[in-house]
Design a protein around this nucleic acid. Structure first.
Length: 372
RNA sequence: GUGACUGUGGUGGAGAGGUUAACACGUCCGGUUGUGGCCCGGAAGACCGAGGGUUCAAAUCCCUCCAGUCACC
């Protein structure tokens, strides 16, 4: 009941949604972009910064926090919100993505996954039951089923991972004990439409507080990612949040809101920020490029963020080239602000019934290779 | 003035007779999508201080000059 989900508006031409999702730590207005704070910190940004740029939801990672400093420690210190001083909603990923990203250092079987720690080589078991326990210890508002994120093109593997993900989803439902956390199911099935629809239907039948689309932006084509997103969203229930995991770029956000997604997360803005790339309308700029050496202008004239209202591109380039901490901070701040601002613009356009026009105009600025 | 040592791409610095002169930093250009890794990939850039000599072959050996460093007058 505390997880009241309301569709505030639907853009009639596109079906894009603007929703309100109530959690114990506040209401999330969608579409929403959640910056990623893997180790209980959105790298280079403080909670104060995040608040200032309008972040409402932040991601953290169960695998990484389980390994270090430990979910029980965080529980004993009062939970993740208190630990990282973020009193707004938090979502924890279960560790399912690490099944994919850390493929060379894990073993999967029907019961779960054994990871070999990249920190000290020790073994760490993750099962659906343990993933629930870890996430209950962490105490995020939204917790994720333990799933198997698989590479996109191998049909047999995708199907096996999907079936395993379904079984694990049932076990997660059974293992969950806290009522102040919403558990989201995760749709798998690679790029295969029939598997994806089957997966979405299966999870819908099980019944979750929300539904995520996993296993995308892992190497498939953009057109395939959009296609899968669209077909999954037609199956998912209307009255529950839809979360596209790990996505993405500004174009991806617009394209997938068009297809019915409410929630996004991605490391992109902070990773780009730490490596000297800034998101701007129509693409991105590489601040390492010598063309910015003498630029006294902000990276975006129209941007209202702290970075753009105080610093010129030449300075940001200098900070990048000298690997200064402030550079990571300022560019990450701009990039996260850029995506959050985009979601706000989209929400406003949806509520105003002009999202089709907004999306067309917005996407026109981006290069053709969007559908590569 | 005398003696010793040293001169290799923007910088540091390998190399001590044999085809495309190592490496690092810097420079330049890509990449980055539920974050192991301020990371990954690539490119440009040196007629080896100058001139002469020895040799089939010289950054490597010899001579002269120039420059720098140090020591001593």
């Amino acid at each position: 009941m505390s997880f009241n989900f309301v569709v505030d508006a639907i853009d009639e031409k596109t079906g894009a949604r603007a929703c309100s999702y109530n959690t114990h730590h506040g209401t999330i207005k969608t579409p929403v972009f959640a910056p990623v704070g893997t180790a209980a910190t959105v790298k280079a940004l403080s909670p104060r910064d995040l608040q200032e740029i309008g972040a409402t939801l932040v991601l953290a990672n169960t695998y990484h926090l389980r390994l270090r400093p430990g979910d029980e420690l965080i529980r004993d210190l009062g939970g993740l919100h208190k630990f990282m001083a973020w009193d707004q909603p938090i979502l924890t990923d279960s560790g399912g993505y690490q099944v994919f990203s850390l493929t060379k250092s894990r073993k999967v079987d029907e019961n779960g996954v054994t990871f070999r720690s990249h920190i000290d080589g020790s073994e760490h078991e993750f099962t659906p039951e343990l993933a629930m326990r870890f996430q209950e210890n962490l105490g995020a508002d939204i917790i994720m089923c333990f799933d198997e994120c698989a590479p996109p093109y191998d049909r047999e593997y995708s199907k096996a991972a999907m079936i395993r993900t379904h079984k694990w989803a049932e076990r997660c439902l059974l293992a969950k004990t806290r009522s102040d956390q919403a558990l989201f199911g995760i749709v798998q099935g690679g790029i295969f439409d029939d598997l994806r629809s089957e997966s979405a239907q299966h999870l819908k039948d099980l019944g979750f507080g929300g539904y995520a689309i996993g296993g995308l932006s892992v190497g498939e084509k953009k057109s395939e990612m959009y296609q899968v997103t669209a077909s999954v969203c037609t199956v998912l229930p209307y009255d529950a949040p839809r979360y596209l995991m790990g996505v993405g770029t500004p174009e991806d956000l617009v394209q997938c809101v068009l297809r019915g997604v409410d929630i996004f997360d991605c490391v992109l803005p902070t990773r780009l920020g730490r490596n000297g790339a800034a998101l701007v309308h129509g693409g991105r700029i590489n601040l390492r490029n010598s063309k910015w050496k003498n630029s006294g202008d902000p990276i975006s004239q129209s941007c209202s963020c702290y970075t753009c209202s105080h610093f010129c591109a030449a300075y940001l380039r200098h900070l990048t080239n000298t690997n200064e901490i402030l550079g990571h901070h300022l560019i990450s701040l701009h990039n996260v602000h850029f995506l959050i601002d985009l979601t706000k613009q989209m929400r406003s356009a949806i509520v105003g019934q002009r999202f089709k026009q907004f999306a067309d105009d917005y996407l026109r600025a981006y290069p053709e290779d969007v559908f590569q």
